[in-house]
Write a protein that binds this DNA or RNA. Structure first.
Lengths: 151, 151
DNA sequence: CTAAAGTGTATCCACCTTAGTTACACTAAC
DNA sequence: GTTAGTGTAACTAAGGTGGATACACTTTAG
């Protein structure tokens, strides 16, 4: 149960939606159906989808025949969008207990670390922004073909 | 108690060592003294120092008057070295439960995600490699002066 | 109008990780 | 041989996580 699996969950859901919504007269995309692909509980899916909805990445319709859809084409949803849609959780956390402010190092180090961490996080974000949900879907389906061919 | 505060702890320790070891006829750098700056328990410090020692970033002497020292100048210890010295913990975890392999998306997505995550992590590492412990020490002490001056 | 099929959310549980702590064997200098 | 350190095992308390159940709310189908 690794800490930050939420990113994987969110990307999986969006990729699944992109795959499932390609046709028109399809079954409705419910949290139950998504849960089957992800192999988890529908509530877990809804919790995640709620965050993606707040970020404007997906849309929901309520009531009977209600369900989910991408708010815009998969080509226009980058993994950076997904990352930012999730509740902020710093890559590097600060000290569990605040350092001793009487110490020359302890006094200023959190400020310095904050700057370093911000730069590193920005580099990571730039990398994430280069990939879209459409890319993930394409590569995932391609991997499927390769594996099938290898058998 | 944020997840990955180990990086902050390790950098703090190395920075403290760099600061403390500048003179020659100083007091010995014990885990107890470091713990006072970090404001935690000496065992926590020793656990971390043990990993830094395994990575060749610090040296230890045992017995009476034993203690710690940087294994090489602070200018030659990058934050990437520190990051890699810590037990590997991926930035992004995979799904808590394996996806449904029967699903076209579920089958290949972990492979795709793995590639994306690796690229992003490499970008982060490149950023970390640009800063050294000596840089952190300099900026931290500078912050101290600025704050003092502002009072 | 009512039943059905969805979402939204609160609550609980089991599990895991973590920092912190105590205790103690081991090591080397004085 | 005493003293002052490290190395490490074991335990505790706290917090976060995914998962599960339950139920109120919403909308469509009939």
């Amino acid at each position: 149960m690794s800490a930050n699996s939420r990113m994987s969950l969110a990307v999986h859901i969006l990729t699944w939606l992109a795959y499932d919504r390609r046709g028109t007269d399809k079954e409705v995309a419910t949290s139950q159906r998504i849960a089957t692909s992800v192999n988890t509980n529908p509530v877990v899916i809804r919790r995640c989808l709620g965050q993606l909805k707040d970020a404007g990445l997906v849309e929901v319709t309520h009531g009977r025949n209600g369900g989910w859809n991408l708010a815009r084409p998969a080509e226009k949803i980058s993994l950076l969008n997904v990352y930012q849609a999730l509740p902020e959780e710093p890559i590097f956390g600060m000290h569990a207990s605040d350092p001793n402010a009487e110490c020359y190092v302890g006094f200023g180090i959190q400020h310095t670390l904050g700057q370093v961490y911000q730069e590193a996080t920005e580099a990571l974000c730039r990398s994430l922004s280069a990939t879209t949900v459409a890319d993930v879907l394409r590569d995932t389906l391609a991997f499927h073909s390769v594996s099938a061919g290898a058998r």
